[in-house]
Design a protein around this nucleic acid. Structure first.
Lengths: 144, 144
DNA sequence: ACACTATTTATAAACATTACAATGTAAGAA
DNA sequence: TTCTTACATTGTAATGTTTATAAATAGTGT
């Protein structure tokens, strides 16, 4: 399934006229395979073995490119660095306040809220963002 | 009404055992009166007149204190600096993609999503965050 | 093969935020 | 009041993430 996602992403790049370089391929692959919503620096470090000469700038540049063609979303929380998430299917995130773990979870989509917001504020709505915060099962145990 | 909010906030500080210094009073006052969800730097600049010697560190320190006692929420978007919002009543934000304007808007609260997330993920949910993105009425006019 | 453009690299710069040490200020006890 | 102690503020240095820039490299179309 990760294969298919990667394939789909590459198709999306092709049809957007974006070149598929080895670095881009590797960054995308890492984003898809790692379930961990990594930071730019984590991606950089994890590809050091394969690409000893790769620059951090390349990671940032390409994450921006991926964002622009809608392959990737940037997640900004309170902490210092952004995390990046491959948008394959629509999903939300639930985040552990204690250990920082991020888990995907599905929910129908909040169309109703968007509609109401449009009516009340006069905005033309394009998108929304939602996250849920709490304590993950592991951290609940450790607290007891 | 801003008076009452400020008063309530000061009471909250008292009962948390947090000292009410002139700087803290001014920062809170600015947060409550400005409807603009300011950045730390904006707060700092706006109080330069009253407190020529105030340090940026003071602004950051106190925003952290306010966050800890639950008076203030930190809003992190894609851009470089956090914005700060006085939590008086529960509300969500709708944000203009073009000009960055942030407008408050009320909605019943997404208890149902929280409950479902709890069941699906096993997390113990404490909080959630939602923002809506779009184009504000002004920017819609300026586009066409 | 050639010219042209996109991409990568390396490094410097910008910027927000935090850490730290020194100074100042308020509250309570003797 | 004065002493003591804990908390706040200030100024500055340090940290860390992200962006800008210029040079080197690779790819594409003619």
């Amino acid at each position: 399934m990760a294969e298919e996602k990667l394939h789909g992403a590459i198709e999306a790049m092709k049809s957007s006229g974006v070149r598929i370089t080895p670095q881009r391929h590797a960054i995308l692959e890492h984003l898809i395979q790692s379930m961990a919503h990594p930071t730019a620096d984590e991606i950089y470090k994890s590809l050091e073995g394969k690409f000893p000469n790769m620059s951090v700038a390349t990671v940032y540049n390409n994450l921006r490119v991926f964002k622009e063609i809608g392959l990737v979303k940037e997640l900004t929380y309170g902490d210092s660095s952004s995390r990046f998430d491959c948008v394959t299917t629509d999903h939300y995130h639930i985040i552990c306040d204690d250990c920082g773990k991020i888990v995907d979870f599905h929910y129908p989509g909040l169309d109703e809220v968007e509609t109401l917001a449009e009516q009340v504020t006069g905005f033309q709505v394009g998108d929304h963002r939602m996250e849920i915060y709490g304590s993950c099962p592991d951290c609940q145990k450790n607290k007891h």
